[in-house]
Amino acid sequence: MSRIVYLNGQWLPEDEAKVSIFDRGYTFADAIYEVTAVIGGKLLDYPGHVTRLKRSLEAIGIPMPVGENELLDLHHEIVAKNGVDEGLIYLQVSRGAEDRNFLYSEDLKPTFSMFTQAFPVLANPKVESGITVVSMPDGRWVNRQIKTVQLLYSSLAKMEAKKQGADDVIFVEDGFITEASSANFHIITRAGVLVTRHLSNALLHGITRGSVLGLAGKADLQFEERAFSVEEALDAAEAFVTSATNFVMPVVSIDGKAIGSGRPGASTLKLREIYIADKLAHAIGR
């Protein structure tokens, strides 16, 4: 059954939605995106995603395509039109379309699209086993705090990780871990301290990351925001990644070497339960 998608003010079957070949999202990756999780037809962590969307658009000079109230209505409507009970909403805003040129017109009308994906955000089978990662040099552009669609390096790196038999990649720059291919990376030390990379342009300012830090105390965890190396991560008791698609996902090995017991850690799983309970309690429905 074809999904109903949103494109520039229209609701269309997915096979009827067309974007110009001259769109700068296609020719220059000149676009911003966001992903919001849906459980029980309700939106999780939605205010944070809207705030980051506005910040990313402002950073590269693309205007918001619609007002905040209309944006929320569109999220509710796309959930209803596609009968989404559990899954994801992808939103993308490009600068717009015109003949290819490195210089762009300042009055372009943005291209704005939304679509849904069914996805087991709650019953993700990887939670039970945890995921494995390999380390690679971070070759992405420097402004990673902006959530652009420039994801080629991450995609190629994740494919290489798959070839090596791992689930994902963690990027390393100047001897320190920045983040995973599409998630923030964290460790829990043997002393029971949650350590996460401090915010900068080296990594995406994750919405789930921020929520988890705010809930750390409920899991009896103190936290520190600082840089840490692969060696420190391997010496940790536990590790995990956070994202809108995976919530809190245990990481059990790096480069084939086990972290802690090599199984999902108790504190990580507790933090996942606390996060899910909190977000369900504050999910936004129509």
Score class of each variant (00 low, 15 high):
Ile60Met: 12
Val230Trp: 05
Arg24Phe: 07
Gly217Met: 07
Ala236Gly: 11
Thr27Asn: 13
Ile274Pro: 07
Leu280Ala: 08
Lys162Gly: 09
Leu53Ala: 06
Pro65Asp: 07
Lys18His: 14
Ala183Met: 04
Phe115Leu: 14
Met136Glu: 13
Asn184Gly: 04
Phe28His: 13
Tyr46Lys: 09
Ser94His: 04
Leu203Asp: 04
Glu224Arg: 10
Gly175His: 11
Glu273Asn: 14
Tyr6Ser: 03
Ile21Asp: 11
Ser2Lys: 14
Pro264Ser: 09
Val241Asn: 08
Arg100Asp: 03
Ala161Trp: 01
Thr242Gln: 10
Arg24Gly: 01
Phe22Ala: 14
Lys147His: 06
Leu234Tyr: 08
Thr27Trp: 09
Val93Ala: 02
Ile60Gln: 11
Val79His: 01
Lys218Asp: 14
Ser182Gly: 14
Arg190Pro: 03
Glu238Cys: 10
Ala266Ile: 15
Asp107Met: 06
Gly206Thr: 09
Leu12Ala: 11
Val5Asp: 03
Leu53Phe: 09
Leu53Gly: 00
Val251Ser: 00
Val133Phe: 06
Ala183Pro: 00
Pro13Cys: 00
Val93Ile: 15
Ile170Pro: 05
Gly87Tyr: 03
Gly96Ala: 11
Val35Cys: 09
Phe176Thr: 07
Gly83Ala: 13
Leu108Gln: 11
Asp30Gly: 01
Phe112Asp: 02
Tyr153Lys: 12
Glu238Trp: 09
Ile146Arg: 06
Met249Leu: 15
Ser94Asp: 05
Lys218Thr: 08
Gln164Ile: 04
Ala237His: 12
Ser105Leu: 14
Phe28Ile: 01
His76Pro: 00
Met159Thr: 12
Gly87Asn: 06
Met64Lys: 02
Ala183Lys: 00
Arg286Thr: 03
Leu194Trp: 03
Leu12Asn: 10
Gln117His: 13
Thr208Arg: 02
Asn184Ile: 03
Leu234His: 07
Phe247His: 13
Asp138Phe: 11
Phe115Pro: 00
Pro63Thr: 09
Lys54Asp: 13
Leu53Lys: 05
Asn246Gln: 15
Gly130Leu: 05
Pro125Asn: 12
Val66Trp: 01
Asp30Lys: 01
Val66His: 02
Leu194Phe: 02
Asp45Lys: 12
Asp45Arg: 15
Arg55Pro: 00
Leu7Asn: 06
Lys109Leu: 13
Ala80Lys: 15
Ile276Arg: 13
Val251Cys: 04
Glu232Gln: 14
Val134Tyr: 00
Ala236Thr: 08
Thr196Val: 12
His282Ile: 02
Ala227Tyr: 08
Met64Trp: 04
Ser253Ile: 10
Ala237Cys: 07
Leu103Arg: 14
Ile146Lys: 08
Gln92His: 10
Gly87Pro: 06
Ala281Lys: 15
Ala258Met: 14
Ser154Phe: 02
Met249Ile: 08
His205Val: 13
Glu224Thr: 09
Ala202His: 11
Thr178Leu: 08
Pro125Gln: 12
Glu273His: 11
Arg197Met: 12
Thr51Cys: 07
Tyr6Ala: 04
Ala244Glu: 10
Ser182Ile: 12
Ile60Thr: 13
